[in-house]
Design a protein around this nucleic acid. Sequence first.
DNA 1: TTAGGATTCAAACAAACGTTTGAATGTTGA
DNA 2: TCAACATTCAAACGTTTGTTTGAATCCTAA
Lengths: 224, 224
Amino acid sequence: MNDTKLIDTRTRILDVAERLFMDSGYEGTSMRQITGEAGVNLAAANYHFGSKEALLQEVFKRRLEWLNKERLRVLDEMETQAGGQPLKPSQIVDAFFGTLLRMGAHPTQGGETFLRLLGRTHTDPSGLIKTLFAAEYSDVLERYKTALFRALPEVPKAEIVWRLHFMLGATSYAIAGTDALDLVTDWQLTEDDKIHSSERLLPRLMSFLIGGLRAPLPPPPDKS
Amino acid sequence: MNDTKLIDTRTRILDVAERLFMDSGYEGTSMRQITGEAGVNLAAANYHFGSKEALLQEVFKRRLEWLNKERLRVLDEMETQAGGQPLKPSQIVDAFFGTLLRMGAHPTQGGETFLRLLGRTHTDPSGLIKTLFAAEYSDVLERYKTALFRALPEVPKAEIVWRLHFMLGATSYAIAGTDALDLVTDWQLTEDDKIHSSERLLPRLMSFLIGGLRAPLPPPPDKS
DNA sequence: TTAGGATTCAAACAAACGTTTGAATGTTGA
DNA sequence: TCAACATTCAAACGTTTGTTTGAATCCTAA
């Protein structure tokens, strides 16, 4: 087992697969495209990963493990700092979603490509993806849920869960690509707005998320 | 041209395609699955629609035309009622997103199936989908954008556009399937919460969206 | 230097894909 | 009733798909 070339082939396949899955989706990407653009033999992909499905799993796994470890680390650090006191909601939101968005600027962790892949995949109901996400996210969500419950003791837990869900949606959409924004854009934004839009995304999204999280509760259900 | 049977075959294909595209995506669904489950001959799909791509377009077109006409009608009605005064932001949000969600309870317009298909497709960057959406949404978004600008004159237009984008994301995710919520759920919700969750989605989402829309603006960009 | 496992490679596999064909059947208006 | 058109149908088309094979090559440890 060669230490430089083996890792190179594996990594080249993973990197290209990540980008192509982002561009064209899982079913829309063929093994021949992946291995072709990666400059490796077709059979190499099956040799290193076993199957296309297993390759998809690896593409997500190597990033999500890093991300969710980082999310737990940041939350741990905040809670230590707070010394038993509940955190501020804005801290929790930043630890979860801010860490995700800042991953887009982290060159060794896939940069924007993985972020966009993740965003577009979050609404994919395919069994494979759902199973993978459930396994990869469960610990992290449990911790953040608990932190939010403590931070917002006056808000019913069901509402917090729903709002976490909405926050995930707004964020997925935001990172799925500023391309999709071209739908909504067109209209009069200054060049300045466009140039800085990527780096300004985080504060803008954060304001929106916290506004939604702290919004007045909906009227209680009709008892008829 | 037979008036009952032709419409039947066409509609049966459209209905099944809508459901299968929702379940498995465009590339993940084959013409044989569609025509098989619809109980029509394989060649019938190509006969009536020309190609798989054209079939996908039709699936979206018949629903989006209805939805966006309805959205414009509701907004027109509100503006007439207001007699030249700007609308309240919450009215505009409800006219746009409320109309969408209420479509899920409209049996002749695809019900929840189309809603979930739309939710999962919103993050799809494929050229075909983007072109279709751009054409189908442009008029409506233009009108609603203008209404929001008038309703929130003190907010910079760029911020409004971004927040509209975030609102679209939260909504897409919410309608893409309460299945995806199983990710976040698990945790202690009462049975009552679960039973009423579908009909309670709209007020919950609305509170979140308006909270986000009206949140304090993010700090201005660093001038360094 | 050499044996043995790891990796690459060209080639082939069966299966599934979207689409087309031409004949058969159904339907309509004169 | 019959000609003209619309629709259905079974069959086949050529591609492309993911995966497998077995030989060739590379690398490393003894």
